[in-house]
Structures are given as structure tokens and as C-alpha cells.
């Protein structure tokens, strides 16, 4: 476990009534400054992992540490949500106020900031995303890309230590996607991004984990993980076209400095099986 670990999940168990053992002892960590991509096929547990990280779901068992303390009681979860900004898959869920300004102000006001301070935060946050002129725009009349950026602004206005972004690129046109990549690069800090869009993950993350059926099956530098063709194909994913174009696809399975496989259970076996 790294010393500067911001978030650590150890031996986490979680399930739904219809899928009782989705996570059966998952381990996960995020370090300060990580730009971490979480990839996996549908139903692999990415969103559930995020919902646990932000305290919307409580693990049935296991240890959850964040920001140097164990997360157990409701006040711990409140503090957790204050320090982790979460961008939802559907921006429409996140924008419920009449105007952009009020949507962005919602979080700071709930944190007890004064009106003046909140307005300053709103202005600064919107300006940092290049959306200064959007303050009085009506949230539901924005385009998909604009909505996504405003939703991001609502999370950033909480001044979080970690940003969780669940499918931030879904439904965006190429230009909006490029804008988002630029903004995320500029924001920096610690970001965890779940996405099916491998190009987006490659453009935004330095480290990637692959999830499959509630397990973390690979963890390593972005290009090493995403460029492992057999790993990607075996877990229902595909190698980004840009990596293929650069000829940086690894087809053998014995990487010296490549991704570490088998965080979890029986993954080595799985890997042998598919090789």
C-alpha cells in the first residue's frame, strides 16, 4: 500500500439481492495525484465501486479507509462526500436547479459557505472551465457537452480532494470529448475515471485497472494495460485504436514492467485459461 494512499479498500464484500457476491474481497487503492482509469465490461462493478467510494453504498464487510481515517459512521460518510466529487453518468440527474449558477452553488451552500463566498466559488469554478458566461443560463437548456461541464463544475465547486467520474465521455460528440479531456488535464489533482471509451481513458489516465465480474483483474500503467490485447479481449474490452496505430500492442503475456494481473481471486488462473 502506498504511503500517500488517499483511499484504500481492503477485502471489501458487497452484493445486491439479485447478485449477492459482486465483490468478494476486492482490494483497491487510490494515491494522491493518481489519474486512474477503471475499465471493464458492463456489469463488471465499476459503478458499484464508485458508489462505495462515495459512500452511496456501504460495503457488507471489509476495511474502508479514506484520507487517513476509517470510514464507518454517518459523519465519516458525510466528510467523505465532502472530499470526493462525483460526476454522475447522466448529467441530467446532477442538474436540478433552474440556472447553472444555482446548480453550482448548491454544494457550497450546503457546506455552510456564505452567499458571498459561494458566489465567488461559482464564478471561479465556471471561469476555470471556460464557462463564465453560463452562470445565468438555464441548466436543462444546455447541450450534452455543456451539461457535462456544468455537472463537473457542480462537483468541483465542493473543492474536493478526489474526483470520481463515472462515464464522463458517454454521449459526447468528439469536440465535447476533446474539451472534457483538456479540462480534466488542466484540473489535475486526483481523478478516478470509469469509462468504456478506451481512447478517453488513454488520454486522461496514467494508471488503469481492469474490472471483470466484480474483480480487479489487472492494474498498471495505462498503455501497458490497454495495449495488452489478449487481456483486453478476454475481459470484453478492446485495445484503443490509437495504440494499435502506434503499433504498441502487446500480444504475449509475460510483461516485465507491464500490468500486474490478479488483484483478487483466481485471476492468474483465468489468465492461464485464456492464454
Amino acid at each position: 500500500m502506498p504511503d500517500n494512499g488517499l483511499i484504500q479498500l481492503e477485502d471489501i464484500h458487497f452484493g445486491y439481492p439479485q447478485r449477492r457476491h459482486l465483490f468478494a474481497g476486492i482490494n483497491f487503492h487510490v494515491s494522491g495525484g493518481d489519474l486512474l482509469g477503471v475499465v471493464g465490461a458492463n456489469g463488471s462493478g465499476k459503478t458499484t465501486l464508485f458508489r462505495i467510494l462515495v459512500g452511496l453504498l456501504r460495503p457488507h464487510r471489509g476495511m474502508f479507509n479514506a484520507f487517513g481515517r476509517a470510514i464507518q459512521s454517518p459523519p465519516d460518510y458525510d466528510e467523505l462526500r465532502r472530499r470526493i466529487g462525483f460526476l454522475f453518468q447522466d448529467s441530467e440527474d446532477q442538474l436540478f436547479c433552474p440556472t447553472v449558477k444555482e446548480d453550482v452553488a448548491f454544494g457550497p451552500l450546503n457546506l455552510g459557505k456564505s452567499k458571498t463566498e459561494t458566489l465567488r466559488i461559482v464564478e471561479e469554478t465556471l471561469a476555470s472551465l471556460g464557462m463564465s458566461g453560463f452562470a445565468d443560463r438555464i441548466s436543462y437548456e444546455l447541450s450534452g457537452g455543456e451539461k457535462r461541464l456544468v455537472a463537473l463544475a457542480t462537483a468541483l465547486a465542493m473543492q474536493p480532494d478526489v474526483l470520481l467520474l463515472d462515464e464522463p465521455a458517454s454521449g459526447l460528440d468528439p469536440r465535447s470529448k476533446r474539451d472534457l479531456v483538456e479540462q480534466l488535464a488542466r484540473i489535475g489533482g486526483t481523478q478516478v475515471i470509469a469509462s468504456h471509451d478506451m481512447e478517453f481513458v488513454r488520454a486522461t489516465c496514467r494508471r488503469v485497472i481492469v474490472m471483470d465480474a466484480g474483480k480487479i483483474v489487472a492494474d498498471g500503467p495505462t498503455d501497458a494495460v490497454l495495449g495488452d490485447e489478449s487481456l483486453m479481449l478476454h475481459h470484453g474490452l478492446e485495445v484503443p485504436h490509437s495504440l494499435a496505430a502506434e503499433g504498441r500492442i502487446a500480444t504475449d503475456h509475460h510483461h516485465g514492467s507491464g500490468p500486474s494481473h490478479g488483484h483478487g481471486h483466481g485471476t492468474s488462473h483465468e489468465r492461464q485459461e485464456h492464454t
Binding site: 454522475f88 447522466d90 446532477q94 436540478f96 444555482e102 450546503n110 457546506l111
Partner: peptide, 18 residues
């Protein structure tokens, strides 16, 4: 989902506006 989005931004049952 909307409720969760609100909870993530510190909503405690009171609607505050500017």
C-alpha cells in the same frame, strides 16, 4: 439518482438557494 446526486453535494434535507 437525483437524491444521491444531492446527497453527494451535502444535501441534508434543506433546500438552500443564493
Amino acid at each position: 439518482r437525483v437524491h444521491e446526486a444531492m446527497v453527494c453535494r451535502g444535501f441534508d434535507g434543506r433546500l438552500r438557494t443564493l
